[in-house]
């Protein structure tokens, strides 16, 4: 890590430029991408947000809470239910998914506030996800059970969003706003307090900082972001199934955080993107795709235990997250 303030300022400016250049360049993707690639880029943005939200709790707050698939499913089903049964437009359903996801985060934070930590917290929060999946299957009058709940007439502000290109621009805007928001938050005094809780909760509390408030806030933000990702997922697939939010999904989300880099925002973006694309790439090797996928994850974590973000940080200080775990 650089210690020279002027160098730090330079790398901060460079990373800021990079933050705007990448989305601007991405705007041209629809010009060169076919339908399949466009669909994959959209799904990639969904998982980038899933990983950003999950990493807030796991990597930044340091709580081993696996309620992510619950938040993801809640966001997706909130969107689908509001649109299919109540005739809401997608924009309102998306905002509602963020709110309901945040409320789910609030509920999940109760476990952490009760002093439940580590593996116990992991099991309880995973059970929350499984409980929600049971609800999606059995509340079939509302969710249509295993048949899945379809979404019709997806539009934002009166404009149709049925094409993958239209979805792409909406998703790109949401992704940029969320990632920028989280970046700003992590650089603020709130972010500092969240990281302090991760490093030493007792000491943080002894400095007069209300750790409970920050734990609740982080869970709510995580739930909200992953809820938004759920709404984006629902719009991408246009039908929501309970199987999309099972235990395997928790493992995939966790792998995205770890491969990208625990506690790294850049890592979340990379982890979410890479682990969405890789399985698709390996589909061309039928019967071997899982082997390749697993092998790649093992190799990355073996040689880069701090994730792909650590490799980028070594290459350039531009990519060094301020709160990344060294």
């Amino acid at each position: 890590m650089n210690t020279n303030p002027s160098m730090e300022r330079k790398s901060w400016k460079a990373s800021r430029r990079l933050f705007y250049v990448v989305p601007l360049a991405a705007m041209f993707i629809p010009l060169v991408a076919n339908d399949y690639l466009q669909f994959m880029v959209n799904i990639m943005m969904v998982y980038v947000l899933v990983t950003v939200g999950f990493n807030l709790v796991i990597g930044n707050l340091g709580q081993l809470a696996f309620a992510n698939t619950a938040f993801f499913g809640i966001g997706a089903y909130t969107t689908a239910i509001l649109m299919s049964h109540l005739g809401f437009t997608y924009d309102i359903a998306l905002v509602s998914a963020a709110v309901v996801g945040g409320l789910a985060g609030l509920l999940a934070s109760i476990t952490a506030l009760r002093g439940i930590r580590l593996y116990y917290l992991a099991i309880i929060t995973m059970a929350f996800g499984e409980l929600m999946r049971w609800v999606y299957i059995h509340a079939d009058k509302i969710t249509h059970g295993t048949d899945g709940l379809p979404l019709y007439n997806i539009s934002v502000f009166g404009m149709s969003m049925h094409s993958d290109t239209a979805k792409f621009y909406v998703f790109l805007l949401i992704t940029v706003l969320v990632v920028k928001g989280v970046s700003n938050l992590l650089r603020s005094r709130v972010g500092r307090a969240i990281i302090a809780i991760r490093d030493n909760e007792m000491t943080t509390a002894s400095l007069g900082i209300s750790t409970s408030n920050y734990i609740i806030l982080t869970f709510v933000m995580s739930g909200s972001i992953v809820g938004i990702a759920g709404a984006m997922f629902a719009a991408t697939t246009e039908r929501v199934f309970p199987e999309s939010f099972g235990l395997t999904e928790v493992i995939v989300h966790f792998a995205m955080v770890m491969v990208g880099g625990s506690g790294s925002l850049i890592g979340s973006v990379i982890g979410g993107a890479v682990l969405t694309i890789l399985p698709e790439y390996f589909r061309q090797f039928p019967g071997m795709s899982e082997l390749f996928f697993g092998g790649i994850i093992i190799t990355i974590l073996l040689f880069l235990p701090k994730g792909l973000a650590s490799l980028l940080a070594k290459l350039s200080p531009v990519f060094h997250d301020r709160y990344y775990r060294d």
Binding site: R189, R192, A193, I195, A196, R198, D199, N200, M202, T203, T204, S206, L207, I209, R322, Y323, R325, D326
Partner: peptide, 14 residues
């Protein structure tokens, strides 16, 4: 009881 992952300034600001 410092926060080892945080910078000097972040520790002070806390």
């Amino acid at each position: 009881d410092l926060f080892p992952q945080l910078s000097v300034e972040d520790n002070l600001k806390l």
